[in-house]
Amino acid sequence: MSAAVTCRNLEKQYTKGKEVVPVLTGINLEIEEGDFVALMGPSGSGKTTLLNLIGGLDHPTGGEIEVGGVDLNDMNGRELAKWRSEHVGFIFQFYNLLPVLNAQRNVELPLLLTKLSRKQRAKNAGTALEIVGLADRAKHKPSELSGGQQQRVAIARALVADPSLLVCDEPTGDLDRETADEILGLLQTLNQEYGKTIIMVTHDPLAAERARHVLHMDKGKLVTDAGVEV
């Protein structure tokens, strides 16, 4: 199998005034296509930062990053935007749906960037909602849905353009155990039956158990289970 994500000596630092804050200090990582990876680690260890780099939301300050065979280092903002819309689905802790749009329209949003016809867009959005089991709530606004339902809509939105990679930042962080299990089950299905590569940041060991592999981070580095740098 080929690599879905390759990071070589990846670095990210922020500059606050004159002070330089190193956040990622040399990440080496390879994730294969079709993998389901859980990324764990203490707060502030750099999980979100790494996920954002992999998802093409931010530029690294050093090292190399390749996703789906594409070198992200050389892309400008506009190119990254187009690349994201075609290849990556994003799932956040707080769902981040647009409150003014109903479920169907929220899911349809990424398709506005495609050449699909109006009819085809609506159809694909409907299919994505069916996959997450929310076809009957298509006309509901986010405020009329439970947390778990909103996260399902967000997953449908992440799926609708059929990306090969899903990045999830604490997707169950705001949900109760039972609902979290449902969402994790859904992610497993997407991984196993639809072949999506999934990278999921989580603080929840039970959630991490659902993944095929678990990576640990500490202070901007990947470490082994025992806390040794890899």
């Binding site: 998802g55 939301l57 903002g77 506009r78 935007a81 187009k82 690349w83 994201r84 819309s85 075609e86 994003f90 956040f92 981040n96 647009l98 409150p99 949003l109 990424p110 960037l113 939105r157």
Partner: peptide, 14 residues
Amino acid sequence: IPELAVLKTLGFTD
């Protein structure tokens, strides 16, 4: 602001 960030995340250009 978070909503606009989401739009950009989804691939809407600046």
